[in-house]
Design a protein around this nucleic acid. Structure first.
Ligand SMILES: [Mn+2]
Ligand SMILES: [Mn+2]
Length: 331
DNA sequence: GGTACAA
DNA sequence: TTGTACCAACGCATT
DNA sequence: AATGCG
């Protein structure tokens, strides 16, 4: 394999034979402490099912697994073919966490891998979450939210989207995040870029733009940076794009373009977050942002009902067509 | 959450 | 048998 | 070259 450098990161996708049936509702029993589930012929062992992941809310690890099983049909397409960074909370939402990139062993033979060479020469075998069995396997490891790469495994330096990560600087209220989101949409509209918002489930909003695959992550970063700085200068009382924390004016909303970088990730759509109320990163309509929403309107206990009603509002992010062509904007 | 290894 | 360590790492900006 | 940042 050729050596990795800034704009070239070889990767190899190790795929097992596919068994990707869409499932009827999978029901995880409430009375078992551990069990093995057989899903399309794949056995996955689920453990510590009665452990309280949110003690105050009486939400168990079993309940978290059940949530992910229930949303899997809308979630899995967004994870397809992407390396997954695991953020593991074996002792629940308030417990300590650690990041893990290598798919741990032993593991089921059907866990697919994305082997990515890093600039340092390190080669890391990330897991890819391709089906319900793999999803439950990774949640059982203690993952609460899911953090997948922006680029698919067959070309890990050419992402499928550009995004803006809106973070309130201390002192800023969520209303300002909403206002900033609308300003970002307006700027993207004027460039002809389609844009889709979701709550992060934590404190901010993510806005994604589906793009035609082609530009490198670095080129996408450059464009996002330009847009963020234009927005900040046009709305200096509301928005900042300053990278250094100490120089960042208080009470503004950071339009963080810096996450558009190789090997970085954000919490995925439909991820439960390790917050006190078990909030979920939830796609919303621009109309809802205009009307006003709150982060904790969307939680592990009510998002399933919303999905039943609205389907996957981010389905356009998966569309092969109707993706924005950044080519004319590349330097 | 699960393994490896030391005590 | 129990206890503890381990489990990631990029690249750009600033200094 | 080392540190800060997310
Ligand atoms: Mn954020
Ligand atoms: Mn951020």
């Amino acid at each position: 394999m050729a050596k990795a450098h800034r704009d070239y990161h070889p990767a190899k996708h190790t795929a097992a034979p596919r068994a990707r049936a869409t499932h009827r509702r999978v029901e995880i029993p409430k009375d078992a402490e551990q069990l093995e589930l057989k899903l399309s012929g794949r056995e996955v062992k689920l453990t510590n099912l009665k452990k309280l992941f949110w003690p105050e809310l009486k939400i168990t690890k079993r309940d978290l697994l059940q949530y992910y099983a229930d949303v899997s049909s809308v979630l899995l397409p967004h994870l397809q073919d992407r390396a997954m960074v695991m953020k593991r909370y074996p002792n629940g939402a308030a417990g300590e966490f650690f990041f893990m990139k290598r798919a741990p062993s032993p593991r089921p033979a059907w866990i697919e891998l994305c082997s990515i060479e890093h600039g340092s020469g390190n080669i890391i075998d990330f897991p890819i979450i391709q089906d319900l069995a793999a999803l439950l396997w990774v949640i059982n490891l203690g993952c609460i939210d899911l953090n997948q790469w922006y680029a698919r495994c067959d070309d890990v330096d050419r992402p499928d989207y550009l995004h803006f990560d809106l973070d309130p600087v201390p002192g800023a209220k969520f209303e300002q995040v909403l206002e900033t989101a609308l300003a970002v949409r307006e700027a993207l509209d004027s460039l002809g870029m389609p844009s889709y918002p979701k709550t992060t489930g934590s404190k901010g909003i993510h806005i994604y733009v589906p793009i035609l695959r082609g530009p490198t992550q670095k080129q996408i970063w450059t464009i996002a940076k330009e847009i963020a700085h234009v927005l900040a200068s046009a709305n200096p009382q509301l928005i900042t794009a300053i990278y250094k924390v100490a120089n960042r004016p208080k009470g503004r909303v950071l339009v963080d373009y810096n996450q558009n970088a190789w090997g970085r990730t954000l919490a995925s759509i439909y991820s439960v977050r390790p917050t006190p109320k078990a909030c979920v990163s939830t796609p919303v309509k621009w109309k809802e942002i205009e009307k006003g929403i709150k982060i904790d309107d969307f939680r592990i206990d009510n998002v399933r009902k919303r999905i039943e009603k609205l389907g996957d509002l981010w389905n356009p992010l998966l569309d092969k067509r109707k993706r924005f062509d950044l080519q004319p904007y590349l330097k």
